[in-house]
């Protein structure tokens, strides 16, 4: 019996393809954001709000990842932005191959900001790089303030954390200070954006962060 050293990252193939996607986005001058969240946290609502708030300031494209259907892509198209739907057919996350295929279908020269809505799942998407420039986790008030304690790895490597549905705070037992404390324990630096896609409160700060990051890139 012979032992052979391998020392190869299990996701190295995905990571390589993610770098190719990233290079392609950079060539086209597109800044890409990977949006991750539980199902129902409001990723699509955030995209629609962002679309409305950035109109005239940047041109947005959207990639929608879901297990099935094109409900989300149709909403974005109806709101006037180019959108590509990826159906993973049961897969719990997007990967770099899927993103590469979706990029084929988008006119990258026509956009400068790409929002990628990952499959609704707080665990799996965080492990798979797509080629994005920044990673954003969307949490929401009804999910409870203890999510960062239950799912630390989901908050760990995020560049920003959005807390959606703050308009529901009076109706549920959500302790904002406890949430912020739990986020800070795993991620001391990512900006935190409490907002409501329903009322629009807090959306401006999020949009400012998005646009400022594009200029730096």
């Amino acid at each position: 019996m012979t032992e052979l050293k391998v020392e190869e990252k299990i996701l190295s193939a995905n990571d390589r393809l993610a770098l190719e996607n990233r290079a392609r986005l950079d060539r086209a001058g597109v800044h890409a954001i990977n949006l991750m969240a539980s199902p129902g946290a409001g990723k699509t609502s955030l995209i629609l709000r962002t679309l409305a708030a950035t109109r005239g300031r940047c041109t947005l494209g959207v990639i929608e990842g879901d297990l099935a259907s094109r409900v989300d892509a149709d909403k974005v198209l109806a709101a006037g932005a180019p959108a590509v739907q990826i159906n993973t057919g049961g897969g719990c996350h997007l990967d770099a191959v899927m993103l590469g295929r979706a990029l084929d279908e988008l006119d990258l020269e026509a956009i400068d900001l790409l929002l990628i809505e990952n499959v609704g799942n707080l665990v799996c998407p965080t492990q798979f790089a797509l080629g994005e420039h920044r990673r954003v986790l969307v949490a929401s008030v009804p999910e409870g303030h203890d999510k960062p304690i239950k799912y630390p790895s989901s908050f760990l490597d995020m560049d920003a954390i959005v807390l959606n549905k703050i308009d529901l705070a009076p109706y549920v037992d959500f302790d904002y200070a406890a949430f912020e404390r739990a986020v800070r324990a795993v991620n001391p630096t990512a900006p935190l954006f409490p907002l409501s896609c329903r009322t629009g409160e807090g959306v401006a700060a999020w949009v400012t962060w998005l646009l400022e990051g594009m200029q730096k890139a």
Binding site: E3, L4, E7, I10, L11, A182, A185
Partner: peptide, 26 residues
């Protein structure tokens, strides 16, 4: 919550726990 057992500060730098690789084969 991630809290230092010595000084009770929250969080810190992750040194290990993100590994995911094939080390060797026989």
């Amino acid at each position: 919550i991630w809290m230092c057992p010595v000084c009770a500060a929250l969080g810190g730098e992750v040194l290990a726990g993100k590994e995911l690789f094939v080390e060797s084969i026989e």
